[in-house]
Nucleic acid binder design. Structure first.
Lengths: 242, 242
DNA sequence: GTTGATTTTTTTGTATACAATTCTATTATG
DNA sequence: CATAATAGAATTGTATACAAAAAAATCAAC
């Protein structure tokens, strides 16, 4: 059972000094980004401890971090659950992302070196490959990582840290509100963006990025009409029909 | 000794469900904002535990939170210290703040109710009072709270959370790089800003806010020349003189 | 059978004990 | 005397035990 982490514990790849809670954090984070953990899922400390083969102490630390990034909600005395933003909250998150992405895009256009842009392109190719072979989960995660790499290239750690939080929250939002339709094939938009960055066309790059975010927000307005979390609205038809 | 927190533990004012680490977190946070804790200060877990009358578990949680906000630096196996941003990092932080404050200011101009603006004004009056009576620490903290209240008024929790981190980091920067001169009398600029918000003059408000941030950044460029953390530069005069 | 109170179980919050690591001071060696 | 090596103390990382709270299950009354 605890082979899961035993193999990781000794996995000192890249000499990175990952502490145990870093690993647990990353695993849960990825699970959320890949939508293997649905919004609202309860995150039991002991169960997670058994899964990863560590004590609750470590789990707690990881959850605390995720909580600070608002990816999970920590309810005092009632444990942690994967966040499930309301439509209102989702709008606020997307708005915040517009603010950050605009700044990031501008910085990247100004400062990016071509080797870095190459890395961006590689990432999008991977992303495309995932979607082609039907691995939607990994595709969505890589799509998020594209935006995180952009933020890294912007060379501004505070913005990057904020972006981490926003990207994962957006992933949750997509999980919640994107209808079954196989949309979210964003990689072509990513390619366009890379082209604009290569040409250092700041205006176009920002425009493309905003357009990119419009797509997420469009889905929200769509769902706003049907599936609502407003109980009265949900049952009004039922009542009038009776 | 542990009367310090015993009194706070039972202090259920406002019915706020503050858990113990919330309280410790807030105390350390305030101490940093008021500059009672200087940048670079080592934060020993056991000592803090004794001061607040709680176990290391609680201290650790609080430090972990502060670490995520980058207000303290958590060095694996080597403990936590109050962050001491380099000039380069300081510039990045101020840049990030420009991005956030611009968005916040626009949102506030669009949506603020007059009762909220009144609260803003009250806060600035307190701030002014602090500086008049020479309580620089509290003044700086209130100055920060002015910006946090703005972010609250913007009604965007993710932006607010980010702003929390940035404001405290800026406070650290001021602590580090502001020369003895009794500058940082920002409250008059806050008054101007409030006027612009009252008139819903978005352009002017944003312009004032950017100008406000210029003042912080100016200090950095000034100090950039003299007090440097570049050892070679510091001792070059000494060496040539010999 | 449904509602409400009470007990039991589960889960979270906190303290503490021990292990692992880093820091400090002492001693040995050139 | 300076440097290196080593032993000891101090500090952090992790697991675990117990207390407090919440959730679930049981039972009673209607």
């Amino acid at each position: 059972m605890n082979q899961t982490l035993d193999s990781i514990k000794t996995d000192k790849k890249r000499g990175s000094k990952k502490t145990q809670d870093d690993i647990v954090y990353a695993h849960i984070f990825d699970a959320i980004l890949e939508q293997r953990l649905a919004p609202g899922t309860k995150l039991n400390e002991e169960s997670l401890g058994e899964i990863f083969g560590v004590s609750r102490t470590i789990i707690r630390r990881a959850l605390s971090r995720l909580g600070h990034e608002q990816v999970v909600v920590l309810r005092p005395n009632r444990g942690a659950v994967v966040a499930s933003p309301t439509i209102e909250e989702a709008r606020q998150i997307v708005f915040a992302r517009r603010v950050v992405e605009k700044a990031v895009t501008e910085l990247v256009c100004e400062n990016a070196e071509s080797t870095q842009v190459d890395k961006l392109k590689k990432l999008v190719e991977e992303e495309q490959a995932c979607f082609s072979r039907g691995d939607r989960g990994a595709g969505i995660r890589l799509s998020g990582e594209f935006h995180l790499l952009m933020a890294e290239m912007a060379n501004n750690p505070p913005l990057l840290s904020f972006q981490r939080s926003l990207v994962s929250l957006c992933s949750l939002i997509i999980a919640q509100y994107e209808s079954g339709a196989k949309s979210h094939c964003s990689y072509d938009e990513h390619y366009e963006l890379i082209e604009a960055i290569r040409k250092r066309d700041k205006n176009k790059a920002v425009r493309l990025m905003m357009h990119h975010l419009d797509h997420i927000e469009d889905k929200l307005s769509l769902d706003d009409e049907n599936a609502s979390d407003d109980l009265k609205a949900v049952f009004s038809g039922l009542l009038s029909g009776k």
